[in-house]
Structures are given as structure tokens and as C-alpha cells.
């Protein structure tokens, strides 16, 4: 049985203290939330740290709250807490759904949304939908606080724009107006999804046309991406939307860095993108509010 190498655990009492600890530890320390990624990679010997800085001992990071029309999710909030939060279920059911389908019950009970984003594993469900929802990541250090869009946050596979001493304190998601329709669909046959696809459609006043659209695809590139060409193709009358989906699917696939790998050929992934874009759009339009 693979055992974890020895380490100590530090228990910061504030974000500033956590940031100071990270600065002084340098490469020998790392923030630790649920540990579902971190401990697994340490067990394999892929990453080694002498000290884990337990972000969960910082008070105030375990909340989900609404402020100025935006949902704030703290760094210690688990997938399970988001999935079952009455606030999220009511105001952003698509996120509740996405979270309910992450990993398995045990990883959801322990793993955090913020830890998922900070690990920047390319097969993330929430990252794809959060990109589509124009979410932001709030990062804090002793030098101050800054907010990054999801796009700015992800630099590549397993790589974020965070500085060594920055602590992500929350994820902020603008709440959708009533005329938005949205859905997330994923395709998964192993532990991690093979494809994730999110759409957000803003309907016009008459409800018969897509005024603006957003579409994001995840798991098929280093980080999730949107395609402005696909989004332009999705906009327009609902009546002819189905006819435009094929081209929009191709645009989304063109944007992604489709490779032949163990999850399938590039051609297969292009096909999946088209099928799941159609399913996501159909599901989004079935609802009478911004639900999943």
C-alpha cells in the first residue's frame, strides 16, 4: 500500500497568515483544502511538500452567500455543499447540477470547488461551466486582493496565474437574469469526464430568438475554451437554431486543441462536441427559467 511521505500541517487563522506561510515555505509548502488531488499526487510521489497549509482553518471561507446579484462561494466549500445548497439550487441550478455530477460521492464530500480550479486539471466540470457563466476567482495575498476571470486564471494544464503566496478566497458567479437559458452536459466513461459542454443563451424580449450566446467546451484542451464564432452562430431565431448547430459545433471543435489520445481520436471528439452541443442547447431551451 502506497503511503504518504511525512509532512507537517500548519493551521493559519487568517488569509494573510496563510499567505505569509506560503511565502516563507516556498517550494516546500502548499495549500491544502480537501486534499483529493494533492494527497493523491503526493502518494504517487509526483509532488512532495514538507508542510501543508490547511486553508480550512481560516475562518469565514466555508460560506455560500449572495451579494449584489452575485453568488460568492468560499474556498473551503465542498462540491457536496454546493450541490445541496438551497441558495444555489434556487438561484443557479445549473451549478448545483454540475457539482452533483463531479467525481463520486466521496470526492464531492471532501473536495472543494476552489481546489478543483486551483489544481487546473484539464478534465474539470465546474471550470467549463464557470467559464460560460463569466465567473471570477478572487485571490488574496499580503500585497492585496485581485480578481481574475476564469480565462485569465487558467494558464495551461495544471497551471494557473496564481503567485506562490496567493490564496484563492472565493469564486464569484454573476446570477443570471430570468431570460437566460443554460445547461451543462458531459460525457464520461472513466473517472474523469471525456467532454464537458456548457451553454448560456440569452433570449430576446419576445422569447423567440437568441440575443447572445455563450458556449464553452472542456476536457479536450489544456483549459476550457469558448468560441466567439460558435457563439455568433448560435445567436439568431430559435426557429432555425437546430440548423445552425452543426456549424456552431464545428466552430467549437476548431477552437479546441483536439488530439488523438487514449480518450479517443480528434475526429471522435469533434463528433462528441456536436452531439453534446445539440443536447445542451435542447436542454437549455426546455426550461422556463435559467435552470439546468
Amino acid at each position: 500500500m502506497n503511503r504518504l511521505p511525512a509532512f507537517t500541517i500548519s493551521q493559519p487563522q487568517s488569509v494573510a497568515e496563510a499567505s505569509e506561510m506560503l511565502a516563507s515555505l516556498g517550494d516546500s509548502g502548499r495549500l491544502y483544502a480537501g486534499g483529493t488531488e494533492l494527497l493523491a499526487t503526493m502518494k504517487e510521489g509526483a509532488l512532495l511538500y514538507d508542510t501543508l497549509v490547511d486553508v480550512k482553518t481560516v475562518p469565514g471561507l466555508a460560506d455560500i452567500r449572495v451579494q449584489d446579484g452575485e453568488l460568492w462561494i468560499g474556498a473551503a466549500v465542498t462540491h457536496f455543499s454546493i450541490e445541496t445548497s438551497p441558495i444555489v439550487r434556487e438561484l443557479l441550478p445549473v451549478l448545483s447540477y454540475v457539482e452533483s455530477r463531479v467525481a463520486n460521492t466521496r470526492v464531492r464530500a471532501t473536495g472543494t470547488l476552489v481546489g478543483n480550479l486551483c489544481f487546473a486539471e484539464p478534465h474539470s466540470d465546474p471550470a467549463t461551466m464557470l467559464l460560460c457563466l463569466d465567473a471570477r476567482v478572487v485571490a488574496q495575498s499580503t500585497r492585496g486582493e485581485r480578481q481574475l476571470t476564469i480565462d485569465e486564471f487558467f494558464v495551461g494544464a495544471y497551471e494557473t496565474a496564481l503567485e506562490e503566496d496567493e490564496v484563492v478566497t472565493s469564486v464569484v458567479v454573476p446570477l443570471p437574469p430570468a431570460n437566460w437559458r443554460m445547461a451543462y452536459k458531459k460525457f464520461q466513461i472513466i473517472e474523469r469526464p471525456t467532454l464537458g459542454l456548457g451553454v448560456v443563451l440569452e433570449l430576446n424580449d419576445g422569447g423567440d430568438s437568441v440575443a447572445t450566446a455563450r458556449a464553452a467546451v472542456g476536457c479536450v484542451s489544456e483549459s476550457p475554451l469558448r468560441s466567439s464564432a460558435a457563439e455568433a452562430q448560435l445567436a439568431g431565431p430559435l426557429e432555425s437554431l437546430l440548423e445552425r448547430l452543426d456549424a456552431a459545433g464545428d466552430s467549437l471543435a476548431d477552437e479546441a486543441d483536439l488530439l488523438d489520445d487514449r480518450e479517443g481520436s480528434a475526429e471522435y471528439k469533434r463528433h462528441l462536441i456536436k452531439v453534446f452541443l445539440k443536447r445542451a442547447v435542447q436542454q437549455a431551451l426546455q426550461s422556463d427559467g435559467p435552470s439546468r
Binding site: 502506497n2 493523491a40 463520486n104 460521492t105 466521496r106 464530500a109 471532501t110
Partner: peptide
């Protein structure tokens, strides 16, 4: 030993965790 199979499931405050990887 990698949080996938569930053989090691125990409940902590009523929720399942993978005790193989949970500290």
C-alpha cells in the same frame, strides 16, 4: 488506494469519505 473504488468508504459526520486518502 486512489479514491476510485469505494472499498475504504467510512462515514464522517454522516458523509462518505475515501479513508484511503482522507487524512
Amino acid at each position: 488506494n486512489v479514491q476510485v473504488c469505494g472499498a475504504c468508504t467510512v462515514l464522517v459526520d454522516g458523509l462518505p469519505v475515501s479513508s484511503c486518502t482522507y487524512l
